[in-house]
Design a protein around this nucleic acid. Structure first.
Length: 279
DNA sequence: AACGATCCCTGTTGGC
DNA sequence: TGCCAACAGGGATCGT
């Protein structure tokens, strides 16, 4: 599933293909691909003829600034993937967006489950696009341990659920939330508010480390192949995972069998020894 | 306000 | 073997 590392790798790929290029023609062919009160036709009209100024990432959102102030906003959802191809190549199935550039390349968005989107908003609408609800970026702008503890103070929800809340810290998804909690030795059901400042510090270090390793190894490609590197290869971070998808297997740190529970309708993997509940 | 449940969607998987 | 229910989850929304 694309989370911050996979989105960051995608951002770099798109930046290389798009910055300084003029978008010549755009085709949005799935009604759910355009969002935020923009129809597919409006997205096409807002993008065509524009030159790309910048390609940024906020949490799991890709934010592309255009020369007329409009902003292309994209999210990979669960199964979204961008490719850069020659226009003649046969688009693979579930291609919902195509943009042909002035250098002849074509940027495509493929998304079988349509949880992702590619849309276009103006500056005023950006705050209402989902980007406006994001907390600090988990990788570029992580909070200090004191700030994190402040955000979690009084919260009774499980820390796992709070790590998935993009308004607290933006970018973590189900895989890296589980990995960070394991690395930090924090039980996923610990109420957010009981974290000590030391635990917050450890957790933030673990988040940075887990994300940096994932970016460096090309992201996590699961068996469903929903995420692939720009060149079509699988990312190699699967072998770095300590708990996600490893229920029933021994923990590589201590040998205890990894357990899987459900927290807020999300599968949650942890080592009951490394992540013993805080008394 | 905070929290938990539900929904969206489709390719894959597991059980009978 | 074949079919179908269950499962996967990011984010919005709704009820409590």
């Amino acid at each position: 599933m694309p989370e911050l590392p996979e989105v960051e790798i995608t951002r770099r790929h798109l930046a290389q293909a798009l910055i300084g290029r003029r978008i010549e023609t755009v085709s949005v062919t799935h009604p759910r691909t355009a969002r935020f009160n923009a129809s597919p036709e409006e997205v096409e009209a807002r993008l065509e003829g524009r030159e790309v100024a910048a390609v940024a990432r906020q949490g799991k959102f890709i934010v592309i600034r255009l020369d007329d102030g409009h902003i292309m906003v994209a999210h990979l959802g669960m199964s979204g993937r961008f490719t850069v191809e020659e226009p003649g190549d046969d688009p693979e199935s579930h291609t919902h967006f195509k943009a042909t550039l002035d250098d002849g390349a074509q940027v495509r968005f493929i998304d079988p489950r349509t949880f992702g989107f590619v849309s276009a908003v103006d500056e005023d609408e950006l705050a209402d696009s989902g980007v406006g609800r994001l907390g600090p970026d988990a990788w570029l702008d992580p909070p200090s341990p004191e700030e994190l503890r402040e955000m979690l103070s009084g919260r009774t929800a499980p820390i796992k659920a709070l790590l998935l809340d993009q308004a607290i810290v933006a970018g973590l998804g189900n895989i890296y939330a589980d990995e960070a909690l394991h690395s930090a030795g924090v039980h996923p059901l610990s109420p957010g508010g009981v974290l000590t400042v030391e635990q917050a510090e450890t957790l933030l270090s673990s988040i940075s480390e887990v994300l940096a390793n994932a970016i460096e190894s090309g992201g996590t490609t699961l068996d469903d192949l929903a995420y692939l590197l720009p060149d079509g290869r699988a990312g190699e971070n699967l072998s770095n995972l300590g708990v996600y998808g490893r229920e029933g297997e021994p923990c590589e740190v201590c040998g205890t069998v990894i357990e899987k529970i459900v927290v807020r309708a999300r599968s949650t993997h942890f080592c009951p020894n490394c992540q013993a509940p805080s008394t």
